[in-house]
């Protein structure tokens, strides 16, 4: 019989609102791993904890902000990026990260995503891609693979999905990476690099959603989808981004890597430092 090991502390306790746990995510969901990679990367970044701000939109991934013991903002659907812009421009000392889902960021928030990358706003976006709208029960979205079954594509998805690394690189992101929730060390290192990279950085994380997507598409439970990631993933930092679209089939590889790391002028309008004191004192 296994010995029960009781621990009263977790390395990430400082960064989690333990009074809000357990979280709402389903068994097999990859979001816990992603959140853990973010907290690890945050601590490894060397940037003081109180300067980190997490902003999210709406959806399963949008709930990450609420579990982090940081200044955190859970905004409206699709609007995390412009919210982050306002925070960053008004308070440039903040280290702002957006953690949100594929539907939130690339569908309803798609316009903000491409324009933030175009501007090269100093922001890290972690996009958790589970290929469907999970919170509402498994509908198709702009990342749903062609042919996939969802509750709104019962006869198979007839639309082509976004290839997100190709999209954001094309419109100007200076750092672009893709990992899965299986690749926790690579993911943590990529997020740390992204947090320290001036300008618009984008990390896509493929993550199982067994309830909303996996079971309907023969990917099985969360652990089965993680096995699929291990079986099909290849790492190619120099991949041609036109070719890294995802089919989630046994015929095509899942191409992962740190695809883009380059320099562009960083979007820099900012409010001067004394502004906040003025507002608080009524001397604005």
């Amino acid at each position: 019989m296994a010995t029960e090991i009781v621990v009263d502390r977790h390395p990430a306790d400082l960064l989690l609102r333990s009074d809000r746990l357990p979280h709402i995510w389903c068994p097999g969901c990859g979001l816990g791993s992603v959140m853990s990679c973010y907290t690890d990367a945050l601590m490894a970044s060397g940037i003081p904890v109180e300067r980190h701000v997490c902003v999210s939109g709406i959806g399963c991934t949008g709930r990450v902000a609420g579990y982090l013991s940081l200044d955190s903002f859970h905004t409206t659907h699709g609007r995390a990026i412009p919210y982050a812009l306002g925070l960053k421009v008004s308070n440039p000392d903040l280290k702002v990260a957006v953690i949100s889902g594929d539907g939130d960021l690339s569908s309803i928030g798609g316009n903000h995503l491409i324009h933030a990358a175009r501007r090269n706003l100093d922001l890290t976006v972690i996009c958790v891609n589970n290929f469907n709208y999970g919170m509402t029960g498994g509908q198709a979205g702009p990342t749903t693979p062609y042919g996939a079954t969802t509750s709104t594509t019962p006869d198979g998805n007839v639309e082509q999905p976004f290839n997100l690394p190709h999209l954001v690189a094309a419109v100007g992101a200076v750092y672009v990476a893709r990992w899965t929730s299986l690749h926790v060390r690579q993911l943590r290192d990529s997020i740390r690099t992204a947090l320290l990279k001036p300008g618009f950085s984008f990390v896509e994380v493929l993550s199982p959603c067994p309830v909303g997507f996996g079971k309907a598409n023969d990917l099985g439970d969360g652990i089965d989808e993680m096995r699929f990631y291990r079986r099909r993933s290849i790492v190619d930092d120099n991949a041609n981004l036109e070719d890294v679209g995802l089919t989630m089939s046994e015929d095509e590889p899942i191409v992962l890597g740190n695809f883009v790391n380059r320099e562009r002028t960083v979007f820099s309008p900012s409010v001067k430092k004394w502004a906040i004191e003025e507002v608080l004192n009524g001397q604005a």
């Binding site: 306002g86 925070l87 008004s90 316009n111 324009h115 906040i276 507002v279």
Partner: peptide, 21 residues
């Protein structure tokens, strides 16, 4: 901003950043 959806949200973010917006 890219549209008015983003405009108002950036204003809200800036207000939380600490300024009049």
């Amino acid at each position: 901003m890219e549209d008015e959806l983003g405009s108002i949200v950036s204003v809200i973010g800036a207000a939380w950043g600490g300024v009049r917006a």
